[in-house]
């Protein structure tokens, strides 16, 4: 999936149940400027509608706002419900 010439390329990563449901774990994707994690979630068809409340977003390996526009080179991850410890 690409948007020619925007220069906005991000790495998208999925984990655990989200990865298995989607059938892939990492993709490099070129986006339109201003694209947010929320927009990318819809664009990639990862779920019906908005990001579910149980799924968290990380940008560059830190929790992030799903409505914050992505920057070139960002690593975006969608994280299903955490169950550590």
């Amino acid at each position: 999936m690409s948007v020619a010439g925007t220069g906005l390329t991000v790495q998208v990563r999925l984990f655990a149940s989200l990865r298995e449901r989607a059938g892939w774990d990492a993709r490099r994707i070129e986006l339109a400027a201003g694209t947010t994690p929320e927009g990318l979630w819809r664009q990639l068809g990862l779920g019906d509608g908005a990001i579910p409340a149980t799924v968290r977003v990380a940008v560059n390996q830190a929790f992030a706002d799903p409505h914050q526009p992505l920057a070139p080179g960002d690593e975006l991850a969608f994280l299903p419900p955490i169950s550590g410890g």
Partner: peptide, 9 residues
Amino acid sequence: LKHEAPFWK
């Protein structure tokens, strides 16, 4: 860490 560290069981 059970809620804020990314681990999945």
